[in-house]
Simulated assay, not measured.
Amino acid sequence: MSTGLRIGTAPDSWGVWYPEHPRQIPWDRFLDEVQKAGYNWIELGPYGYLPTDPNQLQDELAKRDLKLSAGTVFTGFHKGEEQWQRAWDQAVQVAGLAAAVGAEHMVVIPDLWRSDLTGEALEARTLDAEQWDKLAKGHDRLGKALLEEYGVKQQFHSHADSHVGTRGEVVRLLELTDPQYLNLCLDTGHYAYYGGDNLRLIQEHPERIGYLHLKQIDPEYRFEVLKNDIAFADSAIDVMVEPPAGIPEFGPIIEAVAAIDPEIFAIVEQDMPGVDIDLPLGIATRTRQHIFGCTSFARTR
């Protein structure tokens, strides 16, 4: 068995946040550039960006020697029972497509308390006990259904400007949920955004680390953002920086997670909304070279 994690990338690292947007890179060029940058694994990205016909998607991936690691859905279970149908409608589309081409994971991102389009506050920044209970029960239900219906594992992604971002909030979610149905997509940048120590979380909850997003933040600019209450959507392209310019260091994290399970994915996911489409290829190539240069516990396949 290999001792290194499988390193991949995602549409987000090419600035893709939406199924369609005039400033985003065309999906076929994205796939070409992923191959050129030296990756073999990708995520689906926003549903509808890549082809949604499983046969077409499989063909497009195969001719570039690419494979799919995961899809992504968005949830708001803390808001109430009506959120179940919204989540499951997404899951049927995304998990159905992802599983059809071999993916075994679903990255689940909670709704933000602040709009990612306007920056306005949509609700309170923190949850009360009843909302936490709804959140946890909703994710356990989703994780169970994903596993039983599609053989796909739920990996929860804590996020800036969401209700689950700090160490205390992440740990509380773990305490309230069933490890059979929810583990973490530990996004190293988003966790560090609120001061989280990635290595400590890995060491204290090794059984709950199911997936990685590799990302670095500018540790000083982060405090400008937090102190001045700048929306993440407005700061993402500046606070999330090209490795190795930021924190945390990737090598120790990759090695700690590889010791838990070398089959875990480590997907480079640098937030670059609205970026010039000619920039990502160089950044993605250099990031891959940095990762393979800073640890021997990384592999392409």
Results as ranks from 00 to 15, higher is better:
Q203A: 03
G151T: 14
I247S: 00
A124R: 10
K144G: 01
K79H: 04
A99M: 11
I25F: 01
L127W: 11
E255C: 04
A145H: 05
S158G: 00
V94I: 13
A100W: 07
L184D: 03
H105V: 10
D234A: 15
H205R: 04
Q83R: 06
T52M: 09
A160K: 05
N183V: 07
S115C: 11
P26Q: 15
R301P: 14
C294L: 04
T166W: 05
Y49A: 01
A99E: 11
I291L: 15
E43I: 03
R64V: 14
G38R: 12
L68Y: 03
W132T: 13
V275H: 08
P19Q: 12
H163K: 02
L201Q: 07
L186D: 05
T52C: 09
G293V: 12
R6G: 03
E104T: 14
R286W: 08
I247M: 01
I217K: 02
A258T: 14
G251L: 11
E220T: 13
L142R: 02
S115M: 10
E169F: 02
E123R: 06
L184M: 04
G165F: 00
G8R: 10
Q180E: 05
E149I: 02
P219C: 05
G168R: 10
D197V: 10
Q180I: 00
Q93E: 14
G274V: 04
K153R: 14
S296C: 08
I254M: 02
I267N: 02
E269D: 14
L184I: 01
L61A: 04
Q85N: 05
Q83N: 05
I253F: 06
R29S: 09
D229I: 14
A160F: 05
A103W: 10
E81G: 02
A10I: 08
G138A: 04
A98G: 11
W84V: 02
V241P: 09
E123C: 08
G4I: 03
M272P: 06
H139K: 00
Q93M: 12
S69G: 12
G71T: 09
E207A: 05
S2T: 15
P280N: 00
W84T: 05
V94W: 09
E81D: 05
A160G: 07
L97N: 02
F74N: 00
L50D: 01
Y49T: 00
I109Q: 00
Q85A: 04
I109T: 06
D187H: 06
L146R: 08
Q180H: 03
G38W: 05
V225P: 09
K144W: 03
I42F: 08
E120S: 15
T126I: 08
R86S: 12
L142W: 01
E207W: 02
A95D: 08
A121I: 07
W27Q: 14
Q56P: 07
L186K: 06
F297N: 07
P280F: 01
Y18T: 15
L66N: 08
Y193C: 09
H290Y: 15
G119S: 06
W132P: 13
V239A: 09
Q131M: 04
H139Q: 02
K67G: 13
Q180N: 04
Y181H: 12
L173M: 09
P206W: 07
L184H: 00
T9G: 10
P46E: 02
K137Q: 12
D53C: 09
Q58G: 01
P54D: 12
Y47I: 04
